[in-house]
Design a protein around this nucleic acid. Structure first.
Length: 666
DNA sequence: ATCGATCCAGTTTATGGATA
DNA sequence: TATCCATAAACTGGATCGAT
């Protein structure tokens, strides 16, 4: 069939782990972009536009916002239609193979006048029977905003810690109002159908402890869900009546955001502050580390009461540090398309603030509590210049939604940069794509190695229970099991054997580097394309893998569980006969052929290849020697992580089997 | 051995109040 | 009014305990 160039060319991309770092335009598509400005691209959807900065062929700046606003999830498929001049019309298809539906409001342009009353009406319904307590308590924040709840009602937004930490913090004021502070007792939580018994404990703050996790599980609570508790009895055993607000549209926004796979994968957020450094460096959880070298170019600020009552707003610490705004006292210029404002910038007590000029700005922009605005630094000279962007009309940036979301980002920021992480703890993520683990007594005693959350998140390992293979320099491998331990995640089964075999001792540093998820995915994509071509030799795969990751044929055997197409064609390994199709080839929109490395995910399943390769660092006490003796020093510690991205994969035992190929490399 | 639960230290933000 | 200071509050991650 004769090839005819399309009038409007398309390409499509599946949403894969690490997608929030950016999106690469397929190499094969570049021919359609010749002669265009390849530095910027514009994505259009729903009548809105997003400007992307293109680095090479990767859309970076601006992509994160696009992904967030559309709640992109792993397994989604995006079709890009080139309208010319680097403008792309984007269609988004979900895992159902149908175009994703977005609430009408998501597509509305910024129109505060219309939207505000809607929100207000919805909240009014809640207002009718809810009163709030508490002051600056993020979990109860929405309830606080202009709403007056009775002291016996508490609205909570489910934060990450609520799901990972097995407790829920009770706002101080609420606890005080209901005499729950300083109590240690059992409470009963119930809805119309059943009840749950939980413990209430206090240590300065008041918490719902034991039983909370079960409650969350039973109610399928997810981050961002909003629930209300009403104290219907406050005797010896207080009874909390549960009201599910998830069905209330006014409490829904967060849900969307929480569907973010990035979150699901990395799951970790830090809800709290009004301002998050939404730095592009850490646009998402799963690829935090990867992005570390990028810039902290903007932050998003949720307007808090103090922003209006005081004459300043705090600049996120990390943002200030990254942009060297801390310890500066100067004027800054804030501008949008129409005009500019001048603020003073100053630092006090290690905090950096926008000062004089802020109040006028708030008044002029009619900023209200809960509004969100973004400041992007575009010039950082003597007078830093920021571009101001009003996010109030951006649905996915709805105050509550964005808040948690950005909190997640901030966490990332913290994970990456906070001293806490860098200071040797049991495990810590450092700035490189690996983590350093200090072997502590409990690591040996309890036969467990906790993985730094940043590492877990950035690799999409959160909440996965999968096999991981550790390889030392002698090419001996150990199969270990990843899993969750309380609110920790790490290596459980198999760790003891690894410790014994390698003589791992307390205070030895084990450095475990990895490639970034996107690198792994790139490789997989290439392999998949090759896999479509019959007769491809293993050496060809090696050519792809070896230069970047040091993959050997042996390792390829390990990677053999990557299956390349719907017919179950295996990639390399002849040992994985049981392997079921894990990844389906992408079919070109026009001619039905695979498209330059893009691929879709069959059954939302993807095999990650993670290559660890590094030199062990010497610690202060010369422990490297010990490591050498035990055969770990200077080793290529390799892991191949084959996680299950989706629980339903478990339903297919064949696929589960496909994950298990504990090939000893020795 | 594993999982759940809790404690606690540390970080960052929000805010009340003092001061220039 | 603008800025600074101090600290309460919120939240997280690491470590460890206890039950099974």
């Amino acid at each position: 069939m004769k090839k005819v160039p399309p009038k409007k060319s398309h390409f499509f991309k599946p949403i894969l782990p690490g997608f929030k770092n950016g999106l690469k335009i397929p190499v094969g598509f570049l021919k359609y972009l010749k002669g265009h400005d390849n530095v910027h691209a514009i994505l259009r959807r729903g009548g809105k536009k997003w400007v992307m900065k293109v680095n090479g062929r990767r859309m970076e700046d601006g992509w994160t916002e696009f992904a967030e606003e559309h709640d992109l999830q792993l397994g989604d498929m995006l079709v890009f239609r080139h309208e010319g001049n680097m403008e792309f019309n984007v269609s988004i298809f979900g895992s159902s193979c149908c175009e994703r539906e977005y609430a009408a409001y998501m597509q509305e342009d910024e129109d505060e006048e219309e939207e505000t009353p809607k929100k207000f009406d919805l909240e009014e319904k809640v207002k009718a029977n809810i009163r709030t307590s508490g002051k600056a308590f993020p979990n109860a924040e929405a309830a606080n905003k202009g709403m007056h709840l009775s002291p016996s009602h508490l609205i909570c937004t489910i934060k990450p810690y609520c799901l990972t930490k097995y407790f829920l913090r009770i706002p101080r004021q609420f606890a005080l109002d209901n005499r729950l502070n300083n109590r240690k007792c059992t409470i009963i939580m119930r809805d119309e159908l059943r009840s749950w018994t939980c413990s209430l404990h206090t240590n300065g703050n008041t918490y719902i402890g034991r039983g909370w996790h079960e409650f969350c599980t039973d109610k399928c609570l997810k981050e961002g869900d909003r629930v209300m508790f009403e104290i219907v009895s406050n005797g010896e055993t207080p009874i909390f009546k549960f009201h599910d607000l998830r069905g209330n549209p006014s409490h829904h926004p967060e849900v969307k955001k929480n569907n973010f796979d990035a979150k699901r994968i990395s799951d970790e957020e830090k809800p709290k502050a009004n301002i998050k450094a939404s730095d592009k460096a850490f646009p998402n959880v799963e690829a935090a580390e990867k992005d570390k070298h990028l810039t902290h170019s903007h932050f998003i600020c949720t307007i808090r009461p103090y922003c209006l009552s005081k004459h300043f707003v705090a600049v996120p610490r990390q943002f200030a540090l990254k942009n060297r705004l801390n310890n500066r006292k100067c004027m800054i210029i804030i501008r949008n398309e129409r005009r500019s404002w001048t603020f003073s910038l100053y630092t006090s007590s290690n905090n950096t603030y926008f000062g004089r000029g802020w109040r006028e700005f708030c008044i002029e922009k009619c900023l209200k509590e809960g509004d969100r605005v973004m400041f992007e630094i575009i010039s950082n000279g003597e007078t830093p210049v920021f571009v101001f962007q009003d996010l109030r009309g951006s649905p996915s940036l709805h105050p509550e939604v964005k808040k948690n979301y950005l909190d997640a980002k901030r966490i990332k920021t913290m994970d990456a940069t906070s001293p806490k992480v860098q200071v040797p703890a049991s495990t810590s993520a450092d700035a490189n794509p690996h983590f350093i683990s200090t072997i502590k007594p409990y690591t040996i005693k309890h036969h467990v190695l906790y993985l730094p959350l940043a590492f877990v998140k950035s690799n999409g390992l959160m909440n996965r229970h999968c096999e991981m293979i550790l390889v030392n320099e002698k090419r001996r491998s150990w199969s270990v099991q990843l899993g969750q331990m309380g609110h920790h995640f790490g290596i459980k089964r198999g760790w003891r054997e690894f410790v014994r075999a390698n003589g791992v001792q307390v205070y030895i540093l084990v450095r475990m580097p990895r490639i970034t998820p996107s690198e792994a995915i790139d490789k997989i994509q290439k392999l998949l394309v090759m896999g479509k071509e019959t007769g491809t030799e293993a050496s060809e795969y090696n050519k792809i893998l070896s230069p970047l990751t040091g993959f050997s044929k042996r390792r390829l055997r390990l990677a053999g569980t990557v299956v390349v197409n719907g017919e179950g064609q295996k990639l390399v390994s002849q040992k994985t006969q049981a392997a079921a199709p894990l990844v389906a080839p992408v079919v070109d929109q026009q001619n039905g052929r695979n498209d330059n490395g893009n691929f879709s995910q069959s059954d939302n399943y993807l095999t990650h290849l993670v290559e660890l390769d590094s030199r062990l660092p010497k610690n202060d006490s010369g422990m490297n020697k010990v490591l050498s003796e035990c055969g770990v020093s200077s080793s290529n510690v390799s892991t191949m992580v084959q996680p299950q991205l989706n629980a339903h994969v478990d339903e297919n035992p064949q696929k589960s089997m496909a994950n298990k190929d504990p090939v000893a490399l020795a």
